[in-house]
């Protein structure tokens, strides 16, 4: 039921969008359609009745805490495990789990898994040439090596690469097949900021060439930067999906203005101006010596933070006033953690 409620929410916010799971206007099936997917390990249900659709050329992100079901979903999508229920279609062709799954799909998808080592004694270029030969229409290997910044390591054995370089080599194996769908399981884990942005650029270039991506990540910055749409999984269920902005809007209270001021009547005035429900007095840490403690602090939830800041600057010019805009991380915490509850939480129960 949670899935359905969120789907309704998402569609309400996208009045011009067409329902999931249906072919696009040109009649072509979506890159990936996951329907009523359930994955069980014995008595434990890792993925529970999850469904989503990824359009062609889209980058679709899966977010969730550790154990939320992201990797199990990816394993089912790539045919590596047999779901207890549900159906998965890649470009309209069903994924049939089993030994010949990927072979039957004929190179429709490629995977970059987590924590996988390649052949340790093969050089970077040898590894990619071997991988390329497995696909019907591979990308030129030297070009990919150059793009991923591995040119000076092309003749280095995989075992001699650093962790970040091995991660880039794994990403290269996922891209070298030039497959219509690429599944990336935490693709930039372990990469330094420069390498991460290089990887994003490579992924974006591949997407510009028509490749569709399904990626899981713990990095909110990556999800916001890269993904057209996201789904947040929690305890195996799909809690919400939509564009990053839609998810932030639906799961957070809007912006908060934090005020620190010794002016005694400011809190009362703020409650009168913005409403008592919108103003929350904060006492935590205010009395610790040497930390600016002792100065009263409160926050104001508002949809118009700039107006609130102007109001405070006029009433209390000496006050320390800061705007906190809700982020995807706030939305993620609201959806998956024990923190603040978003406005939709009530409606989905």
């Amino acid at each position: 039921m949670q899935r359905q409620m969120f789907t309704i929410q998402e569609r309400r916010e996208q009045p011009d969008s067409e329902p999931d799971h249906e072919a696009a206007e040109d009649g072509a099936p979506p890159a990936l359609a996951v329907r009523e997917l359930t994955v069980r390990y014995g008595d434990f249900t890792a993925v529970n009745d999850v469904e989503f659709t990824v359009g062609r050329g889209e980058i679709y992100g899966l977010l969730g805490r550790n154990g939320a079901g992201k990797t199990s979903t990816i394993a089912a999508v790539t045919g590596l495990l047999r779901p207890a229920a549900g159906r998965i279609d890649v470009l309209g062709r069903p994924v049939e789990p089993g030994r010949h799954s990927a072979a039957r799909l004929g190179g429709a998808l490629a995977l970059q898994p987590q924590k996988t080592s390649l052949f340790p004694r093969l050089q970077v270029d040898e590894t990619l040439h071997m991988w390329a030969s497995l696909y019907p229409d591979p990308r030129p290997v030297p070009e990919l090596i150059e793009e991923l910044g591995l040119a000076d390591k092309a003749r280095t054995r995989a075992a001699k690469l650093s962790g970040g370089q091995q991660q880039r080599l794994l990403l290269a194996t996922a891209l070298v097949g030039n497959t219509p769908l690429v599944v990336l399981d935490e693709p930039t884990t372990g990469l330094d900021p420069h390498a991460r942005r290089d990887a994003w650029a490579v992924i974006n270039r591949a997407r510009a060439g028509g490749t569709t991506f399904l990626l899981s990540t713990h990095a909110m910055e990556e999800a916001e930067e890269m993904c057209d749409r996201l789904a947040i999984l929690h305890n195996g269920r799909l809690r919400t999906s939509g564009t990053p902005a839609q998810i932030v809007r639906s799961l957070t209270h809007g912006s908060t203005v934090t005020v620190r001021s010794a002016q005694e009547d400011l809190l009362a005035a703020a409650r009168e101006e913005f409403g008592a429900d919108a103003v929350t007095a904060q006492t935590r840490g205010t009395t610790r010596p040497g930390t600016g403690g002792g100065v009263p602090r409160f926050s104001v939830a508002t949809e118009q933070p700039e107006r609130a800041v102007a109001w405070f600057e006029e009433r209390a010019p000496a006050a320390d006033v800061r705007i906190h805009r809700p982020t995807l991380e706030d939305a993620f915490l609201a959806a998956t953690g024990t923190g603040a509850t978003g406005p939709d939480e009530g409606s989905e129960q």
């Binding site: 969008s17 067409e18 696009a24 359009g55 889209e58 749409r229 564009t243 839609q246």
Partner: peptide, 11 residues
């Protein structure tokens, strides 16, 4: 883009 419209719904 010619496919699923949700991919163009990004605001």
């Amino acid at each position: 883009m010619s496919t699923v419209p949700t991919s163009r719904s990004r605001p």
